[in-house]
Computed example of a mutant assay.
Amino acid sequence: VNMELNEEQQTRAASFSIMCYEGNRLLRDWKQRKEKLTTKMAATTKMLVKATKQRTADNRDRADFPVGKRVSFSSTS
């Protein structure tokens, strides 16, 4: 631990302190984008569930008619 560094080792050590590791920044940015996307997806899912429930409730009031069968609304059939 208490070693004396020669001139070459001191020069190398000085260059390492200036060097920046971009990996941490990239990982932090990726995590933030992922959290935003997850939040946005959760909000969209909630909105879709709510819309589906509303459509289901609206469809309960409608009469069920068989698909492809003719329906007559005149008083004389």
Rank of each mutant, 00 (worst) to 15 (best):
V1I: 15
V1E: 09
M3I: 15
M3L: 11
L5E: 01
L5F: 13
N6F: 05
N6C: 09
N6E: 04
E7R: 15
E7N: 07
E8W: 05
E8L: 12
Q9G: 03
Q9T: 00
Q10H: 02
Q10G: 00
Q10L: 03
Q10N: 08
R12V: 12
R12E: 12
A13D: 08
A13R: 04
S15A: 09
S15V: 14
S17W: 06
I18L: 15
M19Q: 14
M19F: 05
C20D: 14
C20R: 11
Y21M: 13
Y21F: 06
E22Y: 01
G23N: 05
G23D: 09
N24W: 14
L26K: 05
L26Q: 13
L27Y: 08
L27S: 02
L27D: 13
L27F: 11
R28M: 15
R28G: 09
R28Q: 15
D29S: 00
W30D: 12
W30M: 13
W30K: 04
K31M: 04
K31S: 08
R33V: 01
R33N: 13
K34A: 14
E35C: 07
L37F: 03
L37M: 03
T38L: 00
T39F: 04
K40L: 08
K40Q: 02
A43N: 07
T45S: 06
T45A: 05
K46N: 06
K46L: 00
K46D: 08
M47G: 04
M47C: 14
L48H: 10
V49W: 00
A51K: 07
T52I: 03
K53H: 00
Q54I: 08
Q54A: 03
A57L: 12
D58C: 15
D58H: 06
D58I: 05
N59M: 02
N59R: 07
N59Q: 04
R60Y: 03
D61I: 10
A63G: 14
F65Y: 05
V67M: 12
G68V: 08
K69E: 10
K69T: 13
K69F: 12
K69V: 15
V71S: 00
S72K: 06
F73D: 08
S74I: 11
S75G: 15
T76K: 09
S77P: 05
